[in-house]
């Protein structure tokens, strides 16, 4: 489904490389966890996959269903079924959740050859999805993320994901800032959405989330590279030992990247 080969990326117009040769393959039905210390490039990887304009791919490629994503605009990637739950969801004053979702759902549906829903059908559909993430209806009429608490923002990302039913969901630290109850709700939501056709990449710091959703594969990113890949045991080890024992793996040709 997703194949990333030797991906190098930096901030457009700046020298400093952030991603330094990432390799990652995700197949349908899989849940991957991406862990790693702060500043290692996890969010950058997620944003590059989603098509953020700040970054420039200098080498390597990202293939989604065999298609080169670098050629596509962010909206086209969304149409293919890529969804990014932002680490820092953006406040969009004046645009209600309802407006955003109707607009998004219908454009994505059309491009994937599905029927658009009329306002009444769409409303029913939203109601089901609200239940999935345990949110109240008045959420729909509020401006996207505006004045939301940290937890509400994260939950709103999951709600949007539930509505848009992506094929590949990139969840960037959706678990941080959630209390245990909210985490449970979010994790249950993800579990219910899981099927053989879709895949998840969970970017996280903590083992916590992975107690609820057991990943098939765990990657550790340090210094812009995936330095180790394993199964759920790896996540446990990280919880115990931290990342220090892996730092040496980030060294290339005797030269350590900061």
């Amino acid at each position: 489904m997703l194949e990333i080969k030797n991906l190098h990326a930096n901030v457009e117009g700046e020298e400093q490389e952030i991603l330094k040769g990432v390799n990652l393959t995700i197949k349908p039905g899989e849940v991957h966890a991406l862990m790693g210390p702060n500043g290692s490039g996890k969010s950058t990887l997620a944003k590059v996959i989603a098509g953020h304009h700040d970054y420039e791919i200098t080498d390597g490629e990202i293939l989604f269903e065999g298609e080169d994503l670098n050629e596509l605009d962010p909206d086209e990637r969304a149409h293919l079924g890529i969804f990014l739950a932002f680490q820092y969801p953006v406040e969009v004053p004046g645009v209600t959740n309802n407006t955003l979702l109707r607009e998004s759902y219908n454009t994505i549906a059309t491009s994937r050859g599905r029927e658009e829903l009329d306002p009444i059908e769409f409303d029913d559909y939203l109601t089901q999805k609200l239940e999935l993430v345990d949110m109240k209806r008045d959420f729909l009429e509020r401006s996207v993320n505006t004045g939301f608490s940290g937890g509400e923002k994260k939950r709103n990302e999951i709600f949007q994901m539930a509505v848009l039913e992506p094929r590949l969901a990139l969840l960037d630290e959706t678990d941080s800032g959630l209390d245990i109850d909210a985490l449970q709700v979010v994790a249950d939501g993800i579990k219910k959405m899981r099927n053989k056709e879709n895949a998840f990449l969970l970017v996280t710091h903590y083992q916590r989330m992975l107690n609820y959703i057991v990943p098939d594969i765990v990657h550790v990113m340090i210094g812009g590279k995936i330095v180790k890949t394993g199964d759920k045991e790896l996540a446990m080890q990280l919880e115990e030992k931290g990342y220090d024992w892996l730092e040496s793996l980030a060294t290339v040709n005797g030269e350590k990247d900061a």
């Binding site: 962010p74 969804f83 990014l84 645009v95 407006t99 955003l100 607009e103 454009t107």
Partner: peptide, 21 residues
């Protein structure tokens, strides 16, 4: 970008934001 990542073209996203403003 947030709106683009939700499937809107850049032009549409700008339009929606200007409208909201």
């Amino acid at each position: 970008f947030y709106l683009e990542s939700r499937g809107m073209t850049k032009e549409k996203a700008k339009e929606v934001l200007t409208y909201a403003f």
